[in-house]
C-alpha cells in the first residue's frame, strides 16, 4: 500500500467527479455527513468554472458518512453523482437507507444496481483513493478547498 506521507493533491483527472467546465477550477475534499460542507456546498456549486469533488468521509466524526459517499459513488455509476450529492447536502435529515432508495427512484436509477454498486470493493477503493490523496495533501478538516492543487480555504477555528 502506498504511504501517506506529504504529496500535492493530484490535479483533476479523467475519473474525477467534475461539475462545470474549464481548464482551471477548484478541487474540494468534502464529507457528505459534514454540516459545514453542506453549507459551503451551496456556494461552491455556484462557482464559475470547473469544480472537482473528492471524497473525504470521516466516519468517527460522522458515522453515516461512509454509506453516503458509497451511495453517491454508486449513483455516479449511473450518471447521477452530483444529483445525489446535491440532494444529500440539501436534506441532511434524510440520510438513512430508505431515504437513499427514495432518492434513487426519484432520479430514475436502477435500485438493484445502486445497492450492488454501493457495496462493491470498487466503490470502496475509489472513495479510499480520494481520501488518501486528501490525507497526503494535508487535509485536516472539511471542507478543504484547493485551487491549482494549493490549499486555499479551510474553516478557521480557535481550538
Amino acid at each position: 500500500m502506498p504511504d501517506l506521507s506529504s504529496a500535492p493533491v493530484p490535479p483533476a483527472g479523467p475519473d474525477d467527479h467534475v461539475r462545470g467546465e474549464g481548464e482551471e477550477g477548484l478541487i474540494v475534499y468534502a464529507d457528505l455527513g459534514c454540516p459545514h460542507c453542506a453549507a459551503a456546498w451551496q456556494r461552491l456549486r455556484e462557482e464559475p468554472g470547473r469544480l472537482v469533488f473528492r471524497h473525504f468521509p470521516v466516519a468517527a466524526k460522522h458515522p453515516r458518512s461512509p454509506a453516503l459517499h458509497a451511495a453517491a459513488e454508486a449513483a455516479g455509476r449511473q450518471g447521477s453523482f452530483f444529483e445525489m450529492v446535491d440532494s444529500l447536502y440539501a436534506d441532511r435529515g434524510r440520510v438513512d437507507d430508505p431515504h437513499l432508495w427514495e432518492r434513487a427512484q426519484r432520479f430514475g436509477l436502477d435500485l438493484d444496481r445502486l445497492e450492488f454498486d454501493r457495496r462493491s470493493p470498487e466503490t470502496e477503493a475509489r472513495i479510499k483513493r480520494d481520501f488518501r490523496s486528501g490525507i497526503r495533501g494535508g487535509v485536516a478538516g472539511t471542507p478543504a478547498v484547493f485551487d491549482a492543487c494549493t490549499l486555499v480555504a479551510v474553516r478557521e477555528r480557535e481550538f
Partner: peptide, 22 residues
C-alpha cells in the same frame, strides 16, 4: 491536544483514527 470536545481536537483525533491502522 488542548481539550476534549473542542471542534479542532475532534477533527484531529477523528482523522488520525482513519489512518491509525497504518
Amino acid at each position: 491536544y488542548p481539550g476534549d470536545f473542542s471542534p479542532v481536537c475532534g477533527d484531529q483525533l477523528s482523522i488520525y483514527q482513519e489512518v491509525k491502522p497504518e
